[in-house]
Design a protein around this nucleic acid. Structure first.
Length: 143
RNA sequence: CCAGUCGGCCGGGCGGCCGCUCCGGGUCUCGAAAGAGGCGCGGGGAGGAAAGUCCGGGCUCCACGGAAAGACGGUGCCGGAUAACGCCCGGCGAGGGCGACCUCAGGGACAGUGCCACAGAAAACAGACCGCCUCGGUCCGGACGGCGUUCGCGUCGUCCCGUCCGCAAGGGUGGAAGCGGUGGCCGCAAGGGCAUCGGUUCGAUCGAGGUCAGGGUGAAAAGGUGGGGUAAGAGCCCACCGCGGACCCGGCAACGGGGACGGCACGGCAAACCCCACCGGGAGCAAGACCGAAUAGGGGCGGCGCGGGCUCGAAAGAGUUCCGGUCUUUUCCGGACCAGUCGCCCGGGUUGGUUGCGCGAGGCGUCCAGCAAUGGGCGUCCCAGACGAAUGGCCGCCACGUGGGGGAAACCCCGCCAUACAGAACCCGGCUUACAGGCCGACUGGCCCU
RNA sequence: UGGGGCGUCGCCAAGUGGUAAGGCAGGGGAUUUUGAUUCCCCCAUCCGCAGGUUCGAAUCCUGCCGCCCCAU
């Protein structure tokens, strides 16, 4: 699963659906390109702990996503995992199970993407599609 | 053995499966090439503090004719060492500890300014005040009335006067005790008591002088203690201690030792301003350099073309500079240019990419110089380079710690979600701070044994 | 990466070398039939922490800790 890296992408996903668990909060939203591979980003804020703690949490989450990617992927979806303190102490198996359930829940809540792209995106504009407009329009705006 | 001081070091090990990143070479695909991507192989991949960002340097850009002064900031015993430092090493001084050892921003207070609350007579230099001592002056009442009387006077009240305290209102006070002479009174006498004069001692007060011994205070008060001495006292004199100190000796120096002599004069604070000496140009790898698509817009050159009006002309078109804008500093005159399109070139800039960016004041070993910090020689090694940011996830065994159980012991079994502080971001030298547990060395004090 | 500021009672805060104002809150009391108002009294000595200078430190110096802000 590819990584999200741009701040604008994170902001876009933050407007989507949320699915909280003990060790993390999952955010998900439709990507501008419905056929694109699923992508995922990680956020661990400074409140959680020092650099060592934050690194460890991100690495555990990343490893869990890697191992479960078959069960989690869905084309045209962007995800952000916000790490919490429990991600450090929770058993890895539990963490992985939570991850799967969170992804399923989030995907269920998202509108069906492909084929109907144009219509559905335009219709519920304010919801998950709206934040992606800026990105989608950036080429037109800046270039 | 117990207690302690100092210095140095480690900060888990081995292995399996699945991943991440960098490098090398292999192979496959795409491509004319440059190159891009895929697959598998081999190798590298966090720290002693990577942290805090408190100092110092390298490196890069900017500024500057070379510097220096001023301002500002920093440092501050002496010497050494270093690229440099506020770090480090050695020494000195002061303080603490029985000791090993530890702590100290530790130059200048006769360049100047300032501060020293409260208390205290006084807070910085020399006195004032209280007190002590010597000398000198003054020490006194008057009028009226009441009462008592030994008829000398005593006492009380009012007024006046003197004097002291007090801003004033007002208050206090009008010497005491001996000695001698004279006068008069009482008494038979011894004697008593009164007035006055002289003089003595004490006291009060004023003035002049001596003095700093003393003055409950305070962090700090005139060198301390003892003796002599004096009117009272005082380094006034003496002894010891303390202080200053020409000069001599040792030391590169800080400083140390001795010390004629001075006779105590010189309080503390500069982490108060300040003075003196020395150091510092500014910014920081988001420094800086290079590449640079599409789109929009800018500038330059060249080609073609020229908005409205007017004149000529049948028209095509030609002419005119009348009208618009820009420039020529402004106004007038004059002049030049512009309007649209095509091509080429240039620079700026958004997003992005590459670089800086890993051979270094480098690590390890060894030898030499030096007490040491450190320096030098030789050999050997190449050892992280990410950028929403790699070094991870899940296990097994072992080591160590700790708790429980078994055992005579060696040891065995089980448990601890036991194993700290903490993650490179241009690099290096320090400092500071955090840290489970452990190892090594040197030394000190005490007890015991030989 | 560079720069600046703050930390004093539960809250807001004054004090910048001489022993910590004030307000709100809280507690006790008085006034009142009761309540409100009003009045009186009480409430920090660990001034973020640790050292140092000084006779004396919230204040001056050094080192830490925490928080906030600014520039890029």
């Amino acid at each position: 699963m590819d990584r999200l890296k741009k701040r604008a992408e994170f902001l876009a996903v933050a407007r989507g659906v949320r699915s909280p668990r003990h060790a993390f909060v999952l955010q998900a939203a439709l990507a501008p390109d419905p056929a694109a591979a699923p992508r995922c980003g990680f956020t661990v804020t400074k409140k959680v702990g020092n650099a060592v703690v934050r690194n460890r949490i991100r690495r555990r989450l990343r490893e869990a996503v890697r191992l479960q990617s078959d069960a989690l992927g869905r084309a045209g979806c962007d995800h952000v995992l916000i790490g919490r303190r429990e991600a450090l102490s929770q058993p890895f198996a539990t963490l992985a199970a939570d991850l799967v359930s969170a992804f399923r829940q989030a995907h269920k809540r998202l509108p069906a993407p492909p084929s109907t792209v144009g219509a559905s995106l335009r219709v519920d504009g304010p919801d998950p599609a709206a934040p992606r407009h800026p990105r989608g329009e950036t080429p037109g705006r800046t270039r």
